[in-house]
Design a protein around this nucleic acid. Structure first.
Lengths: 126, 126
DNA sequence: GTAAGTAATTACCAATTGGTTACTAGTTAC
DNA sequence: GTAACTAGTAACCAATTGGTAATTACTTAC
């Protein structure tokens, strides 16, 4: 587990992390199956192109299942596969951290309000 | 928590996920403080430029602490801040999934060997 | 007859990201 | 005297990513 080559964490992270990817997984884990349009509505800043790309990749990886009714207009929904459900514990754990940090007033690229204590470099005397 | 605006998951994920970022956090969580060179050795494919960038961002966000001895040659090491330690439970949970999927033979962009069951689109009759 | 609704895909362009090479500093070992 | 050691930084270029607008298909409502 000490060499990147043999550590299974790296390939996993490459596929489930990244802009939007983990958030999509969290939404599916937390809310259950969602239609394409519902996912778009839950992520106002994402474009259809990127959402499609992320869902296709997750599908290829066996993490998300796509279900379509070939009607017009089409109705397509997405849910976690049985394997995808393996991620739920970790996602809920991350969510707990998110809530905690939110309460603490954590801000992106500014850190925590108590930053004076934790943010600065430590410089050890020579 | 249903609107992306108000959901604290999105800002958290934006800062701790992404190529290499989560893996760096996992290494620091799992192995303790590590020097720059040790991190490079554990990630043969990362470049110094990218590693520096990821560490700087994590530092700005109060998740990683940088400690330097101003000697020559310099000695710099990185560790999780107290807040950074909040992520340990989630990271270990992800690691458990990584081990399980690895055992199941999961392959990036090919999914699981039992893909026939989970990978294909479901098409519901009209 | 015309517009709306859904889940995309395509093409094109702009922005962001990442790779590579060279360079730095002061001490120690050869 | 010269090379190695460490943790970067800067400059430049190539590759990847993402945004936007246009388009599709058929049905239903106005």
């Amino acid at each position: 587990m000490n060499e990147a080559n043999s550590c299974p964490m790296d390939p996993l992270l490459q596929r489930i992390t990244g802009r939007w990817t983990t958030y999509i997984l969290w939404l599916l884990a937390n809310e259950g199956p969602l239609r394409f349009g519902a996912l778009m509505a839950l992520m106002p800043k994402i474009s259809a192109k990127v959402l499609t790309d992320r869902l296709r990749t997750l599908e290829r990886n066996g993490i998300v299942l796509r279900t379509q009714k070939p009607t017009i207009p089409p109705e397509v929904s997405y849910e976690l596969t049985p394997h995808g459900h393996d991620l739920e514990t970790a996602l809920h754990s991350l969510h707990r951290v998110a809530l905690k940090w939110h309460e603490l007033g954590w801000v992106e690229d500014e850190g925590f309000p108590d930053a004076a204590v934790t943010l600065k470099d430590k410089v050890l005397a020579d």
